[in-house]
Design a protein around this nucleic acid. Structure first.
Length: 594
RNA sequence: GGUCCCGUGGAGCAGUUGGUUAGCUCGCCACCCUGUCAAGGUGGAGGUCGCGGGUUCAAGUCCCGUCGGGAUCGCCA
């Protein structure tokens, strides 16, 4: 190395040592007769004193320099207690400019974080990452990866890579497609996850597989979504739900312990999907605060009020919500309509008299009004929001309202780590057409998810009530992982395909290779995948997963740094075979195997 | 695909009911300055107000479209 020490490590005990440092000019303070340079490298910053003014005069911010000099304790009164190296400084004997820097597009020596436009930061991400905050996110992520690998290796898991060029499957998200030059007219797909490969690895007897795997899904962006993202992907043979949950808990417990010194309370609490929906209106409930939903379907049985003559009537209470202006209450209606609801009925409880007011109150009987505050768990001064209609949709609306209430009323304990498992997911959910008419069923998790023992015989005859051996890991209202016990019996898998309307021919065409593998003694197996980007975002308290990705993309899939994506030349287009017609004999029949 | 917000020198922002030469802080360039640490001082350069169209005597400002960025609903097994 061309340096002898790391700048950020120098302390009073180094006084008298001659050191060579290499790094960047973070700041320069030129007093004419003496100048100070804050020299920054990956370890931190140290003050360098220069008296040879010719050498320092031409220095500018972010020049890459090498300095040699003696470490000394700073003169009395000149210490800087704000930085770790503030007791010492390096008196320069020799200063060499390794490379120069052009004027900066934004201040790299940032003293107010978050004041630079994100697009500019991404365009010059290599400068952005020189800053302490952005760099810290990548260091954190590296540490998490390391802890994960340690835990997985300790548990005897094998790190096995799976292909990134694979075949397109119809289920789930939209695939990214890659034209295949050697077979014009045919296309690879980038994997949405290594799901099928890891199951094949179980058939292959690998027994314990893990991979920190890149996944690709061509869907619209969110703050917590990118088209390529990373999962800790895990699969275990001869394991059941408890074994997988144990591994998942080990991973998060070790990560949180190593990073925050926080002891994750194990075993983590569990909530059935049905309870999560009933109490929180979400399959990824944020349990850092209360305000649980109240089911008033029975309470309003026999009501004259047409709106509440519904399969489900529920409520959520907004503490102090009665003090909202008419305008604010109307805004809730717009908020609900934006989510596709008709509106959000409400009743306010007068803070002084306890009288119930609002448009809905006029439609309710004396009897229903009398007990309502108690039934809803409200108090004087609160607002009660109602949703009535189809059960799940109404619960989801109330759940969203609950989160909004939590935010607006400051009910959320931001320091909490609220982990929990959501279990006992339904196997299927209805598929509806534009008019809301049910046209069939689709797998909630994926079509390889095993039914629970109780549903094994009946899941295909009664899809509505079938439960699956699936589990999601939830942290502070975000899903950070999910998995399931897989179907390992061909016959059960066939019935599962039939239940979602996939004919044996279609199943064979799309998943024939997996079904064929299942002819050869597949072991019972189960697995999980943790979303690393989200996990690290929550772990580090970041706002978006872009913060924990070295080179993230913008919401239209662009990379401001490289300029990707770009048009291709006509020659590239020709060579790639994008416009070629596939040969008549389709690969589908090849894949069907048997 | 829908809705909302943002776009003004290199960065962050201001710009009134439309009205003279578009303003501030930081940065940049030159010079001064021997103990600063967001150093200080003096002077200077730097702007097609994202782009296109429209309204008007007059548009950074109002209207329409479009591009880029962000958020959100749909979507994401």
């Amino acid at each position: 190395m061309i340096r002898t020490h790391d700048a950020g490590t120098l302390r009073a005990e180094h006084a008298g040592t001659t050191v060579t440092l290499a790094g960047w000019v973070a700041r320069r303070r030129d007093h004419g007769g003496v100048a100070f340079i804050d020299l920054r490298d990956a370890s931190g910053t140290v003050q360098v004193v220069v008296r040879d003014l010719d050498s320092v005069h031409g220095l500018r911010a972010e020049y890459c320099v090498k300095v040699t000099g003696e470490v000394r304790v700073r003169p009395e009164g000149n210490e800087n207690p704000d930085i770790p190296t503030g007791a010492v400084e390096v008196v320069v004997a020799d200063l060499e400019v390794l490379s120069e820097a052009a004027p900066l597009p934004f201040p790299v020596a940032e003293y107010e974080p978050g004041t630079v436009n994100e697009e500019v930061r991404l365009r010059y991400r290599y400068l952005d990452l020189r800053r302490e905050g952005p760099a810290r996110a990548l260091r954190l992520r590296s540490k998490v990866n390391h802890v994960i690998r340690t835990v997985m290796e300790e548990n005897g898991f094998l790190d096995i890579e799976t292909p990134n060029l694979t075949r397109s499957t119809p289920e789930g998200a939209r695939d990214f497609l890659v034209p295949v030059r050697l077979q014009p007219g045919t296309w690879y797909a980038l994997p949405q996850s290594p799901q099928l490969f890891k199951q094949l690895l179980m058939v292959a007897g690998m027994e314990r597989y893990y991979q920190i795997a890149r996944c690709f899904r061509d869907e619209d962006f969110r703050a917590d979504r990118q088209p390529e993202f990373t999962q800790l992907d895990v699969e275990m043979s001869f394991a059941d739900q408890e074994d997988v949950i144990d591994v998942g808990e080990q991973v998060v417990a070790r990560v949180w312990k190593e990073v925050h010194g926080y002891d994750v309370p194990r075993p983590l609490p569990r909530l059935s999907y049905a309870d999560a929906m009933a109490r929180y209106g979400s399959d990824k409930p944020d349990v850092r605060f209360g305000q649980e939903l109240v089911d008033l379907t029975g309470y309003f049985a026999g009501t004259e009020f047409r709106v509440f003559q519904a399969p489900y009537v529920g409520a959520v209470v907004m503490p102090g919500g009665a003090s909202q202006t008419r305008k604010q209450l109307d805004a809730w209606q717009d908020w609900a309509k934006a989510r596709g609801a008709r509106g959000l009925a409400y009743v306010v409880v007068d803070a002084e008299t306890g009288e119930l007011r609002g448009p809905v109150a006029k439609n309710l009987s004396e009897e229903h009004l009398a007990g309502l505050v108690e039934a809803a768990g409200a108090a004087r001064g609160d607002a009660i929001f109602f949703a009535a209609g189809r059960r799940t949709a109404s619960q989801e609306l109330l759940g969203a309202a609950r989160l909004e209430i939590g935010r607006r009323c400051g009910l959320i304990d931001e320091s909490a780590w609220a982990f929990l498992w959501v279990v006992d997911f339904p196997m299927f959910e209805p598929v509806e057409d534009d008019k809301g008419e049910q046209t069939g069923w689709t797998a909630i998790h994926h079509p390889f998810t095993a039914p629970t023992a109780a549903s094994l015989d009946t899941f295909d005859k009664d899809p509505a009530s079938a439960l699956s051996n699936a589990y999601d890991l939830v942290l502070n209202g975000s899903e950070i992982g999910g998995g399931s016990v897989r179907i390992h019996q061909r016959e059960v898998q066939q019935r599962a395909f039939e239940a979602i309307g996939l004919s044996p021919e279609e199943a064979a065409s799309q998943f024939g290779f997996l079904l064929e593998a299942f002819n050869y003694g597949p072991p019972p197996h189960a697995g999980i995948a943790l979303g690393l980007d989200r996990l690290v975002t929550l772990l580090g308290g970041y706002d978006t997963i872009r913060d924990v990705i070295a080179f993230p993309k913008t919401s239209t899939g662009g990379d401001p740094l490289t300029g990707a994506p770009t048009p291709i030349t006509p020659e590239q287009r020709r060579e790639a075979g994008i416009d070629a017609k596939p040969r008549p004999r389709g690969e589908a029949e090849q894949a069907s195997g048997s």
